[in-house]
Structures are given as C-alpha cells and as structure tokens.
C-alpha cells in the first residue's frame, strides 16, 4: 500500500508517495532526481549509494524510504555552496582522486561523516572510514591524500 511520507534531503522537505518496498536510493534517484547518489551493486557491498543520515554514513540501497521519514538525509547535492565546492570535493579535484567518478559521491560522503566527527584523522583512520567504499580505478592512494588534505584544510 502506498504511503505519503516526508523526506528531508539537504534541508529541503519533499512530500512523496512511496510503496514500502522502494529503497531510499530508488526514491532519491528516480522520484526526487538526486542522481548524484549512485546505484552500483544494490546489495550493500560497494558503498556507491552512501548517504549521511542523522550524521552517520549509511547505505541507501539497504534503507527503506519509509524508514527515512523525519530524518536528516545528506546527499552529494548538498555539499557545494552555490558554485563553491565543499573542501572535500575540492581536495578530490586538486589531488586527482577521481577517475571514472562513479564511486566518488559515496566516498565524499564517507569522508564527510569522518571529518565532521574527527577533523584531523590519521591515515589509518581515513582508511578505516572508507573501508566500505570500493573504487576500481584509482588504487585509493590519491583518495586517501585528498581526504587527509581536506581534513588539514578544515583546521
């Protein structure tokens, strides 16, 4: 049975009609047009669909949209301010941490969840924080450099 719910995405409240089996990932991309959140494995293995809910990095492919009602959802679209990229996004550009780009939104959000809690993480802490995000292009080194640089810049 369809239900009317409110989803708060990047501070904007959307009223949507959803069926219970729809995942947050599907509703973000297909109903609300937030296509920056990527669908890859759709089974919790790859981290491409990572969003932040109430301050924690989670997988939108394993979250039911109806259960995200009333929570603060942050997606990649909420990171930049106008034309100014978020420092993490800028660091990814500066350090060449992007190749095909498909894993990038998920990685940036995992990095944001980390840096919001721990602005100056060690390399080991950065590695742990992105342990659930797969990148098949870069070999990760430049991604680690970018997140570390973004952390240093925030201080």
């Amino acid at each position: 049975m369809k239900r009317i719910i409110e989803l708060n995405v990047n501070g904007v409240v959307h009223e949507v009609v959803v069926e219970p089996q729809r995942t947050l990932l599907e509703v973000l991309r297909e109903t609300l047009g937030y296509t920056g959140t990527k669908k890859a494995c759709d089974s919790g293995d790859c981290g491409a669909c990572t969003v932040i809910i109430d301050g924690r990095a989670v997988l939108s492919c394993l979250t039911l949209a109806v259960e995200a009602q009333g929570k603060n959802i942050e997606t990649i679209e909420g990171m930049a301010t106008g034309d100014r990229l978020h420092p993490i996004q800028q660091a990814f550009l500066d350090k060449g941490a992007i190749q095909c780009g498909y894993c990038t939104p998920g990685l940036v959000l995992s990095a944001k969840a980390l840096l919001d809690e721990n602005p100056k993480p060690s390399r080991e802490e950065v590695k742990k924080a992105i342990g659930g995000n797969l990148c098949r292009c870069t070999g990760y080194v430049k991604i680690l450099d970018a997140i570390e640089a973004a952390g240093e810049q925030a201080n």
């Binding site: 989670v58 997988l59 394993l62 995992s110 924080a129 342990g131 659930g132």
Partner: peptide
C-alpha cells in the same frame, strides 16, 4: 563488515 553497515 563496513562502517556504513556497522552504522545500520
């Protein structure tokens, strides 16, 4: 698992 899965 992974950080995201541990959060869920």
């Amino acid at each position: 698992a992974s950080p995201q899965l541990r959060n869920m």
